[in-house]
Structures are given as structure tokens and as C-alpha cells.
Design a protein around this nucleic acid. Structure first.
Lengths: 204, 204, 204, 204
DNA sequence: CATGAATGAGAGTTCATTCAT
DNA sequence: TATGAATGAACTCTCATTCAT
């Protein structure tokens, strides 16, 4: 079984580029024409690769969605926000970090998120990917909630369960959808949502 | 749509029943599995008719959506509300009529509306049908707005354009979606929405 | 649900002819090139129909095998033999009937049987169809065995279990395969197998 | 196939081990799931190598079959038997040697042989490999036949042509298949087949 | 020698739709 | 009016194979 740790950096990089091209093309076409109506052949054409390169580089049609979600989860902004939580000094700062973090992610992952939200009721594959994405975001929010409880300064009677639900309410997918629907910029939306959340959750 | 007087009434009635069975089956399956993933064959099976009867009785797949919309538009509740407008004696009463009318329609057409709203971003056929449905509702709201302007009693500075937009905001598809999301009954939703609209539109 | 018993004999007959053409083409191609290597497209081409007519008239690829088996089971010769059993007057006559019946079936269904036997070890679909076919034949043999026991005249100590196994041994698929391998005609094979079986099973 | 004396022995040995692993995995999967339904990727996975190593170490899919046959031909037991023929002192001993030799080979190459025999009617690649294997065995039998004629002691009137055909009949693939079907051990089968052959071929 | 990436060809299957009846 | 049969087009996905490394 002795696998040689044989890694060619050039090939690896080229493969990563291919993968990214495929994912980007898929996100654009899914967003434009809907998940069900977008064929793998169309994605391959848009990405400039053979149909089966989609399969070898990412996987089947549903794997494309999950790969998008994974990429979003692994986004640097997410990790940076998570890391910054540890050095936060107040619950208010945590809220600001979450607001900015979700704002940035929303901006960078707009395509993916619109695919997930627009198609989740219309196709089980998308519903599943959306479920995964939501679970990931909720997990991050749970970390933030824990940190807030550690730091204190919350309105009286606010417990862990409630805090996690509130974070999802103020910074989860539906909240940002409202921001977009209202025509606010992501930055203004962050300020507004952070204000609402602070009013509701922090001690006066 | 007017029926010819000298057609066999029995056959006509049977045909109408067939059509209704097909439409109901289609609405249920579309709502359950999504528009794109529901095949005409599945609809025919659920309706207990041959595949082609779907075509002869209603039309192709996209025609099913438009037929649902047409049926909703032709709903008795809509006509009753429209008729009642002419005998309304105040703008406040018009708002109450609109609130009750949209509430009833929402209740009776829930299946169709969830299909339209859940799938409009995922499939052009649905988007088109949703557009038609929205235009129909907006047209009814325009009538109501005209009647309100005739009756007077509006807050100062409220013109036709603004009034029509406000009616859509308070009683259109998204508003009722919020009602459902908040867990209110259709009746309570009607009261709440009517209150919001009255505060905003009527002179004190 | 009220299905009209609407049957057009012309259409029905045409459909049956189509089905037969498809099945015959499939049997020939399967026998010639093997089950796995024969594509549905090739079958359709050989039958002079569209690819999907194969699906609408018979079913998928594996359904073709099962349909062949079903047709074999429903073969007139099988029914005739089964019917003749009731008027048989001795166990020896039953053996002669079975020998002649299996001989005739073997002749008429040679194509199907060679497909089943040549491909059963190479593909699970064929294995399944062969299993079904074998079960059917064994069921017929069980009837013959029951009749023989009723009529008596068997060698001492021969019971039902043993009799059924022996009938399969002398007249089942492998036996007739040997007949073919030895270069005997089906008729001569029937005589020979019947002789062997009589020696072994009947009282002197 | 002769190896160059100055190639790195270590690398060569590693390559040989890889080749063996691939061939063994292929034989097992072919026997288990059939030739046509076994993919090169599955073989590579089972062998713990990359897909392409299958190609570089052995060759394409059909080459795998031929390589198995070659390995069987090159088996030490075969060479030993062939060598022993020269020192045999009677036709009876030759028969014993052939019986023992084919028995041992049958035991050691069971996997390969079942692949060849179970799939030869279902796939041309296998048919070709089986043909090659059969030709090889027949060639060995021809040598044995020649030796028997040299040594004498054959039944009157038995010539070369007939002798070669008889050896295939008594010790070829179908004969051993019957042995297996009858549930005999390879050793008992050898004794039985040798007895049959002796009765038929040797002078009393 | 062995590898990961990429490919072209083709598979089985499902779909919405139309035709003659 | 409603039907069963048949179709052409498209789909996702798997396959054996080759290339640069």
C-alpha cells in the first residue's frame, strides 16, 4: 500500500484552478437559470473544460453545491472572524465582529447563497446543501454565543439557547435577504443589524 | 371562457371535473416535489387520467401553472370583493375588504401560491406565471386604490401611485408570506395587516 | 377513477407486434454479442423503432430479459403439456409428456435460453432472469411429479422431493445443454433423456 | 520477457509485485462481478494502485486476461510436468503425469479459469483469452500425445489425432468443470479422470 | 515506474410532447 | 373528449484510455 507522497506542485495548482473555474461557472449558471435547468454540459462549456472534467475535478451535480458550501465555510473571512472572537473584550465587540464577518461573507459568497436560497424549495439537492450551510453558520454562531456568555454584559435572562437563536435571527440567511430586499448595502446592513441585535441582547 | 349553451352539459361537466382533478394533482405535486422535478406522467397518475388528458384538458406543463393562476383570479371570493368595493362607503372599509379578500384567497389558494413563490427563482415557467398572478393582483389593488381616492379620507399627500404600491406592500404576496412565517392565522394576519395599512394610509 | 374499458383492437395488435419485434431483436443481439455489450440503441435499431419505444413497449434493459422469460412461460406448448398431464394414465406417459414438452420448448425458446445460460455468470440481471425462469420450470415439474405420484408405478422408495429433483436433473436446463453439446437433435435428445429418466424412476 | 541483467533488481522486484497484486485483484473482481461489469478503476482500487498503474504494469483491460493466461502457462507446475514427460517410461505414466499436472494447475488457477469459462460466451475479450488458453493446453497435450506414441502401449488403432482429442476430452477445461460440478476434490477428480482415460486409451 | 488530471465516447434512462384512434 | 403508443431530445453519469509530470 506504500503510497509515495508524490506531489507535483504544478499539476496540483493547475487542478485547483480547474476546480475553481468549474465551481464559478456552476454558481453563475445555477444562479442565472436555476439548479434543475442547468446541465452539467452547460457548466463544462462555460468553464472551458470537458464534461467529465466536472466529474473528476469536483463530482456530480449535487457535489458542486456541496463544494460551493465547503469553499464558503473554508473562506478566510470566516476563519479570521472566528479567530478574532478569542481576543474580543466585550459582548458588544462580538456582535460587531459577527456583523462584519457575515457581511463580508455575504458579499463574497453572494452567488452561492442566492443559489441555495432561491432553489432550496424547488430541489432536494439544493435543500440538502442549504441545510449543511445553515448548520455550519449556526455552529459558528454557537461559538460566538459561548464567547458572549463568557464575556458577560448581556441583558438579564438571556441564556445560551436564546442567544444562539437570536444570532441566527439577526445575522442568518433570512436577515441578510431582507437587507438585500430593502436595497441596503452590505455595510449599511451590517450596521443596522448590529444595532438591532445590540438593542435586543445587550444590557443597557 | 364562456360556455356554449348547446353543448352537452353532462360531457361538459365531466370535462370540468377532469380539469379540476388534474389541476389539484398538479398543485399538490408541484408543491411537494418542486415544479421542475414533477413530471407530467406523475401528475396524470395522481389525477387518475392518461398522460395525454393532461394536455387535452389543460395544456402543457407550463399551461398548468397559468391555469392555476386563472382559477385563482376567477375565484368567487375575488369577484365578491371587487363587487363589494362599489358599495363601500369609506376608504377604511375598502382596506377592510381588501384585507379580508386577500386573506380568504390566500387561504383557498395556498397550494398554488406556495408553488409560485417557492419556484419562481428556480424556473422561468414559474417566474412567468408568478408575474401574471402578481399583475392580476396589482390590477385589483389598482381598482381598490381608485375607489379609495373617490371616497376620500386618505392621509394628506397620498396619491394614486403611492397608494397602489402601499396596497401591494401591505396585502401582496410577500406580506402574507411574513404572516405565515410569523405563525399567525390568516384571520389574525388580516387584522394585523389592516391595522398597519390603516395607520399608514388613512387620515387621522 | 372511472376508467373506460376503451380498447382499440387495431392499436393493440400493432403494439403487440412492436413488442414482439423488440423482444426478438433483443434476444438475437443478446445471444450474438452478450447481454452487457448489447446497447438498447442497437436493439431499437435492429427492431426498427425509436430507442424509447423499447422502454414504452417493454421496459428497461433488464425488463427485456424478464419479458422473454414471461413469454416462454406463457408459451402454448407449456400450457398444452400441463393440460395433458391431467389426462395421462401412467407415470411413464407423464415422463414422455415432459420430455416432449421440454424438447419443444427448448426448440422454440433456444435463443432466450442460450442468452440466459451463457450470461448468467457474467451479469446479475441475467442471473436474476435465469433464476425466475428456473423457478417457473421447477414449478411445472412439481406438478408433473405430483401427477406421477397420483398415478403410481414408480420405483420403490421414490418420494416427492427426490422426484422433483430428478425431473430437473433429467429435463432441466443443464440436461438439454448436454444434449446440444453432444450434437443430438432435440427429438433424439428427448428420447434419450426420457429413457434415462424411465430407467431411474419407474418400477420395472 | 527476458529481463536485462543490468536493471535495478529492487525496482524490478517491486514492479513484479505490483503486477501480481493487480492481476490477483483483477481475477477476484472478474470472478465476482463478471468481466464486463468490473471497471479498471475498481481493479486499481482493490490492488491499492493508481488507475494508470494498471495500464503501465499490465496493459488494458483485455491485456489483464491475457496476462493471467500467460501466468498460468508459465506456471512452474506446467513446466515440471512437461519436463517429467521426457523421463516417463510408459504411456500409463504419462497419463498419470497429465492427470496430476492438470489437477494441480486447476487448483492453482481456479480463479482465472472460472473467469474464462463463465464469461467466454458473454464477452469477446474473454472468448479470445479462453481460446489462447485452450490452445496452450492443447499444445501441451500434443507433446504428451507424442511422448505416448513414442513409448507405445496404446490400444490398437489409436493415432495421434485421436489421442490429442481424447486428452482434451479427459483432462481439458470441460472435464474438470464436471469434476467440480460433481463435488469431487481435485485429487479424486484426477484419479477418476485418469482411470477413464486409461480404460479408453491404453492396451489391456 | 507510477501518478493525478483530463478526456471522448457512449451508456441507460426520463422527459414533455404528438399522433392516430 | 380521452386514450395508448410512439417519439426525439436531453439528461446524468461511467467507462477505458492517454497525457504531462
Amino acid at each position: 500500500m506504500e503510497t509515495r507522497g508524490y506531489t507535483s506542485p504544478l499539476r496540483e495548482e493547475a487542478a485547483a484552478r480547474t476546480r475553481e473555474r468549474v465551481l464559478l461557472a456552476a454558481a453563475e449558471l445555477f444562479a442565472e437559470g436555476g439548479y434543475a435547468r442547468t446541465s452539467v454540459a452547460a457548466i463544462a462549456r462555460a468553464a472551458g473544460v470537458a464534461v467529465n472534467t466536472v466529474y473528476t475535478s469536483v463530482g456530480g451535480k449535487s457535489a458542486l453545491l456541496l463544494a460551493m458550501v465547503d469553499d464558503g465555510v473554508a473562506d478566510e473571512a470566516v476563519r479570521a472572524t472566528t479567530a478574532a472572537l478569542t481576543s474580543a473584550t466585550s459582548a458588544a465587540e462580538v456582535l460587531r465582529l459577527v456583523a462584519r464577518g457575515t457581511s463580508v461573507t455575504r458579499d463574497r459568497r453572494e452567488l452561492t447563497l442566492s443559489v441555495l436560497l432561491d432553489n432550496r424549495d424547488a430541489h432536494p439537492d439544493v435543500a440538502e446543501a442549504a441545510r449543511v450551510a445553515e448548520a455550519e453558520v449556526r455552529a459558528r454562531f454557537a461559538e460566538a454565543a459561548d464567547r458572549m456568555l463568557e464575556l458577560g454584559g448581556l441583558r438579564e435572562g438571556v441564556g445560551g439557547e436564546e442567544l444562539r437563536r437570536a444570532l441566527w435571527f439577526y445575522f442568518g440567511f433570512p436577515a441578510w435577504r431582507v437587507v438585500r430586499a430593502e436595497g441596503l448595502s452590505w455595510g449599511d446592513g451590517a450596521v443596522w443589524l448590529c444595532g438591532q441585535a445590540s438593542d435586543s441582547l445587550l444590557a443597557r
